[in-house]
């Protein structure tokens, strides 16, 4: 799972560089994002702008990360593509997450 991290103000931004979060990579995704959250920053903003496909396995992995971070840190989402936004909407998970249209603009590389 190819992810990148950066800082934007107080936030830790985690950018997913793979196009799919599905059953084949859900566990690897969850572990990679958990490792990335060893870095400081709150909220943690997951930039899904390059993800064109997410199934319920991927959704479950995103929810698992949110629960892992709570209650000390918040997980927020950014730049959902239409097929990914549809999954959050259909499952009403769009009511659970703060969803940004764009990732934070002033990204600065971490480390």
């Amino acid at each position: 799972m190819d992810i990148a991290t950066s800082r934007a103000g107080e936030s830790l931004v985690i950018t997913v560089n793979d196009g799919r979060i599905d059953a084949a990579v859900a566990i690897a995704f969850k572990e990679a994002v958990r490792r990335a959250t060893d870095l400081p920053g709150n909220p943690v903003i997951l930039d899904l702008g390059k993800v064109s496909f997410l199934d319920s396995s991927g959704l479950g992995a995103v929810v698992a990360v949110m629960k892992f971070l709570a209650p000390e840190r918040r997980l927020e989402l950014a730049a959902l593509t239409p097929p990914v936004a549809k999954v959050f909407r259909l499952t009403r998970m769009d009511s659970v997450f703060t969803i940004h249209h764009q990732p934070p603009g002033d990204l600065q590389a971490v480390g």
């Binding site: 199934d55 479950g60 629960k67 499952t91 659970v96």
Partner: peptide, 22 residues
């Protein structure tokens, strides 16, 4: 769909058939 009760009781699964039937 399982009840959505953030954050501790959020379901991590059980979405599949809801998506199919939707």
């Amino acid at each position: 769909l399982a009840a959505i009760t953030p954050p501790d009781l959020l379901p991590e699964g059980g979405f599949g058939w809801h998506i199919i039937r939707s």
